[in-house]
Nucleic acid binder design. Structure first.
Lengths: 325, 325
DNA sequence: CTGAAAGCGCTTACAG
DNA sequence: CTGAAAGCGCTTACAG
């Protein structure tokens, strides 16, 4: 029908007929059937995002950015959570989302489950991913977006060193690669300053996990500065320090990653590295669209990581402040 | 074909042929085309959730519950955010999600945009919603899930009164109805105790907004207890009290709503009303499935609101502790 | 228990 | 610029 043409805004339609059709459409309350359209065109203007979690700040903000960008170009967004990193769950997630007519897929590959899912996406399915910068393997094979976490961690660590701390301890979130980007930047800054590189403390993603893992650090009088893998770990660290009677920032400095909306209201207000997840999500959709249709232009918008200095950092108790390098 | 039967687990298939077909399927890497299936069956096993926000704790947890429950029964989940409460944005959201073949719709109607979207869902589309308990209008017309916020607020307020506070102030999140359920419970508890009912302080949803709105309360020596509409407002209140030099809980008690995962790590640890949003999300999907197919049973799982007493509440400075009623 | 036929509501070339 | 025809890959009765 001609109806199809006016709905799809085909140019070759006389203005008279177009408005006549538009009229009839609204008169009858006509709504096109998406399934039929997808079948006939053998493509659906949709993205589905595969992730192992939807509530952690980074993932949720990424999803927000993806949805905004998708909505702006008329794409529909689906979401499928990967139950675990076990092969059966990976396969189940793939089966649910990678049907032939399905549009594109975006996978949030910040953990093992995500990385495995990314690698299990069948050939022929358009895909883009948000990955850790250290995941060079997948970066070469798929369109990916990532932050320069290495540089960000290096900057944050150097900032602490510049304040006079002899060294900086690191409370790490789990990494999807053998060595996380943040960990790498932290280590590089320490080595560049000739500081000792303490053993990394491995933690999970939550404040609870951060508090538990930071207990040992709190009891060690040697630690005067802690770089945390995210703001939740930093909140947990603040809690552990308080419980151990060590004041922040007077005795111990703490830095987080993310800059969640609550960070400025913690006690003390958290110094942290701001990560523009919403922008990164938009970028990821842009990349996917470019894969779907190479004629679309790709201009990336995510802001680079930025250290936001607030109240949880200061010179060490008795340290001689060194000049910042 | 018989293939269709084995995929859909039709009982009337001989075991021999079934396994032969299964074999061929995995051999060829066959994946059914969802669009074709939806077209032919004129129904898609999917839900799309309509919400004005995906990152606020309550919404995100609700989404998590919906996704879990949907995944368990093989339904796909889509998400569409409503840009604003303006008619054009409401309509756009509806148009994107309520296509004829579309499965069900779940709308998170905790704010004006959500309520309007709910009411704009075309007849014939199966729908369920998460609403405020005070929204009796929509509760009568659609299958809905809600918390007993009124009772929860009443309990929390009575707890504070029982600690000896002469009255309790209320910092409210925006309500989708003329008078929010939490506000109503708070007022009832005050009246039941013969306490004066202070003017409500209206705030938004964020810690920032809570901090700003709580500034006036912090400067008023009369206020010794504040019931906040959510944990972010409570965090902001903690911040404002600290800035004004009023210690919590010694001089002022603070209670939140939600029990976000971070609440126990705030300083002081936050006393709050735990709301089982994940369970509520599961329940909402259950209701939707029942609408889609009345033969499915509906057993609700969400836990009732529960007051979690931590460190942000205590007796007022010089008040005479009264017995808890 | 298993196959042949029609049709779901669109889009895509192809004629006029 | 606008129709008529075929077909996308399934499911749903209907026969065998």
């Amino acid at each position: 029908m001609t109806v199809s043409r006016v709905i799809n805004e085909h140019p070759a339609v006389k203005e008279a007929t177009r408005s006549r059709v538009q009229h009839a459409i609204s008169e009858l309350g006509f709504r096109p059937n998406r399934a039929a359209r997808a079948l006939a065109a053998s493509a659906d203007p949709s993205v589905t995002v595969l992730t192992s979690n939807t509530t952690l700040y980074g993932r949720a903000a990424l999803l927000q950015g993806i949805e905004e960008a998708a909505r702006a170009v008329g794409m529909t967004v689906g979401i499928a959570v990967i139950a675990s990193a076990r092969p059966a769950d990976i396969q189940a997630a793939i089966d649910r989302t990678c049907a032939p007519t399905a549009g594109g897929v975006i996978v949030i590959a910040y953990d093992l489950a995500g990385v495995r899912a990314l690698r299990a996406v069948p050939a022929g399915i358009p895909v883009a991913a948000a990955v850790e910068a250290t995941n060079t393997h997948d970066t070469r094979r798929f369109p990916t977006v990532m932050f320069d976490d290495r540089a960000a961690a290096q900057t944050a660590t150097a900032y602490l060193l510049g304040l006079g701390h002899r060294t900086v301890h690191h409370l790490a979130v789990p990494s999807s690669t053998s060595i996380g980007a943040r960990l790498r930047g932290w280590r590089a800054a320490l080595q560049a300053a000739g500081a000792v590189v303490p053993e990394v403390v491995e933690a999970g993603w939550s404040a609870e996990s951060g508090s538990r893992a930071a207990r040992a650090l709190a009891e060690d009088p040697q630690v005067t500065a802690v770089l945390c893998g995210n703001d939740d770990l930093a909140l947990g660290t603040l809690h552990a320090m308080r419980a151990a009677g060590r004041s922040v920032p007077e005795q111990v400095s703490v830095i987080g990653f993310d800059d969640v909306p609550q960070a400025a209201y913690y006690s003390p207000a958290l110094t942290t590295v701001r990560l523009d997840f919403v922008g990164l999500g938009r970028d990821c959709l842009t990349l996917l669209r470019h894969t779907l249709d190479p004629t679309t232009s790709v201009t990336l918008v995510a802001a680079p990581p930025e250290l936001i200095v607030r109240g949880s950092t200061a010179a060490p108790p008795s340290g001689t402040p060194r000049r910042r390098r």
